[in-house]
Design a protein around this nucleic acid. Structure first.
Length: 646
RNA sequence: GCCCUUGUAGCUCAGUAGGUAGAGCACGUCCUUGGUAAGGACGAGGUCACCGGUUCAAAUCCGGUCAAGGGCUCCA
């Protein structure tokens, strides 16, 4: 299919490259490109040059640098294949060899538009319209390829020494799914071949700690077609981790005077009409469950599907909803009895399972699922208590991250979009809440960004965001202020003035969802969990069959002290058992031979510290207990037997 | 939901030009009783995702469905 002769475009063609203007429509000043961005951006131009040589009819959109490389979007009837990428790389190498200088040309808006018309590049015309009136219109030219571009670029294409095209993906023009879907080619470039090779190797390494892979290897969870997409089945090993995390957070919640509640998985539609979740968010909910009698009588009347939908929306027919959120039920608990200002704040928590109809293309292992359990809580407080309560929530999140040794996260403050009117609640309250969030974020000692327009419609929020092994960002912990639901449910407390007042609500979840958090945690630890979390904490390795009875005696003792321990009674040599134990990432391997049996000792090999020599068993037990109780964490050594072998 | 790719044993993968399947690891049995990252022998294990079509013959070619992966869009 690539038998076609590489053609040079008959007509000039342009690329509008200044992504910063296009993507950040907020009128920020143009950021200067770093040398690496410049290199990658130039490589994107070289890609476009090559594409036009091989596919002169291609329509070009934009080709900016990204965090890890660059991409370029094309509109073309021919579908790019893996072979095409190879051919394009080859062509790009030619362009590089030609050492084409990048030339900056300033032009007028009219000239540029004429140029696009002649080149038959409609996306460019559209992009041209994005350039602010007071900004110059500039082209960059390399060889036969001319591109609308704000720059900047390396001096000539010969500077591009190490690049690789990585993948093809669909991407909507201007990121809008109503627009045509273009073909995006992703690639990356580095100053030299070594750095490129290192990057590609890091990508490979990262895949080894992918939670989907580790989850399978360590039997933590599975997702089964017959159960449903996006439905996580926690296997025994995964259940241990989840339970330990829940125990951990419950210890902290006890210190902060939270109270636990339990609520059902379904609730009446009316409840969610009051809260506003139904039908407003219907697209991301499981369809409602309709009462059998109602369904039957509607069938008799010959109602269509859309009739049913309308009646459900209008509230003419009642039904139940698999709960998309826990808050309405917690609110009903609050509302079940009168509250004095002396009772506040009320802090109610639940590991509450919710269900959301995520788009099938969005599902991802444990990090994006259709049913998940939030470590949810709702705080009902007075306006005066708000700041302290938020602070308490943030402390909780910090404790979680610190205990688990997670330091690589960022904080996002979601604020109102100043131009929008979709927000509920008095704006003075918003001002106060936003100000409080800002001040508290400042004290967190963590990089944070303020993002206008990222607030929920009911209140501002603070999110904790971490990256997975592939660099995708996931929101974990969140603290959200809510002025809306107390209003909708007409919540009250009696103030010191003996009059009813409206409480403020805080939604918060330090882990976010157990599924997503554990998914991220698996990658954080690369499956190498600290003692308190490890599904199998200790494994006893008898030197031979003869030592199995002694091993069993130790096993009994460990289990009576509530350690998750096993005995490896396989008929293998010690070396093989150790190897297996290391691969299974068991924190402690206890080797027992005749010498140890005589002295009531064990030879200890720890995942974190390697060989620790021989210890009296009783002493080891208390050391392990201390490590477990303090939830001690220390990064393990990273030797991998697989690598060692090669 | 949309675009592209993929779908062979529990896992990682072979399977040449269509002729009803192989390897390594894991697993089981036996031999071996071994001191800090793989001892040996034998064995069991697969409706080649599913449905349909072409063909004398389909893991292999074609169509559809489902699922997974990478993006895009979305995420109360």
């Amino acid at each position: 299919m690539l038998g076609r002769v590489p053609l040079f475009p008959q007509k000039p063609s342009l690329t509008f490259a200044p992504m910063f203007v296009v993507l950040d429509s907020l009128s920020q000043p143009m950021k200067a490109m770093s040398p690496l961005e410049e290199l990658r951006h130039s490589t994107a131009h070289v890609l476009a040059t090559a594409v036009l040589r091989l596919f002169p009819e291609a329509k070009l959109d934009i080709g900016p640098p990204t965090d890890s490389g660059f991409y370029y979007d094309f509109d073309l009837d021919h579908r790019f294949s893996a072979e095409d990428l190879q051919a394009l790389e080859k062509e790009m190498k030619k362009v590089v060899k030609e050492r084409q200088p990048f030339e900056r040309i300033e032009t007028s808006r009219d000239e540029a538009e004429t140029f696009f018309q002649e080149a038959g590049q409609p996306y460019k015309i559209s992009r041209l319209g994005d350039i602010p009136e007071d900004e110059a219109v500039t082209f960059y030219r390399n060889g036969e390829f001319t591109d609308l571009c704000a720059g900047t670029h390396v001096p000539h294409t010969g500077h591009i020494k190490a690049f690789k095209l990585l993948s093809i993906a669909g991407a909507y023009h201007r990121g809008d799914e109503k627009n045509k879907q273009l073909q995006r080619i992703y690639g990356t470039a580095f100053p030299n071949k070594k750095e490129l090779a290192d990057y590609l190797e890091r990508l490979e390494e990262a895949k080894k700690r992918d939670h989907r892979r580790v989850g399978r290897e360590q039997k933590l969870f599975t997702i089964d077609e017959e159960v449903g997409q996006g439905m996580v089945l926690w296997m025994p090993n995964g259940a241990v981790i989840r339970q330990e995390l829940q125990n951990f957070i419950m210890d902290e919640l006890f210190k902060q005077n939270y109270e636990q509640v339990f609520t059902p998985h379904v609730g009446k539609l009316g409840l969610y009409r009051t809260s506003g979740h139904f039908p407003y968010y219907r697209d991301s909910q499981y369809p409602p469950l309709v009462e059998p009698d109602a369904l039957e009588s509607m069938a008799h009347e010959g109602c269509s599907c859309s009739d049913l939908t309308n009646r459900l929306n209008e509230g003419d027919v009642d039904g139940f909803l698999l709960k998309p959120m826990n808050c309405p039920m917690h609110i009903r608990i609050y509302a079940s009895q009168p509250h004095s200002y002396r009772d506040l704040p009320v802090r109610m928590f639940e590991f509450g399972t919710v269900y959301r109809w995520e788009q099938s293309g969005e599902l991802n292992g444990m990090t994006r699922v259709r049913g998940f359990t939030q470590d949810d809580a709702h705080l009902f407080c007075t306006e005066d208590q708000l700041k302290d309560e938020i602070e308490g929530c943030l402390d909780l999140v910090k404790t979680v991250f610190r205990t688990l040794g997670m330091s690589d996260y960022r904080v996002r403050i979601g604020l109102r979009d100043p131009d929008s009117t979709k927000y509920t609640g008095p704006s003075e309250n918003w001002d106060k809440a936003e100000q409080a969030l800002r001040e508290l974020a400042r004290d967190l000692d963590v990089p944070y960004t303020e993002e206008p327009g990222e607030a929920a419609f009911y209140g501002p929020k603070i999110d904790f965001v971490v990256k997975d092994v592939i660099g995708r960002e996931w929101q974990l912990g969140t603290v959200q202020v809510d002025y809306n639901l107390p209003e909708r449910f007409a919540l009250e407390y009696i103030g010191s003035d003996n009059k009813p007042h409206r409480p403020v609500m805080i939604h918060r979840a330090p882990f976010g969802s157990m599924e997503r958090f554990v998914g991220v945690l698996i990658e954080h630890f690369a499956g190498d969990f600290p003692l308190w979390l490890a599904p199998e904490q200790v494994r006893i390795l008898p030197l031979s069959d003869k030592l199995v009875p002694y091993g069993q005696k130790l096993l009994q003792k460990l289990r009576s002290r509530k350690f998750r321990a096993t005995l490896d009674s396989h008929d293998e040599k010690l070396g093989a058992k150790i190897r297996r134990g290391r691969l299974d990432k068991i924190p402690y391997l206890l080797i027992v031979g005749g010498r140890e049996e005589e002295a009531e000792e064990v030879s200890v090999r720890s995942r974190a510290h390697g060989e620790m020599g021989t210890l009296p068993f009783a002493q080891l037990l208390s050391q392990l207990e201390e490590e477990r109780e303090t939830r001690f964490y220390r990064a393990a050594q990273t030797d991998e037997p697989n690598n060692a072998k090669k």
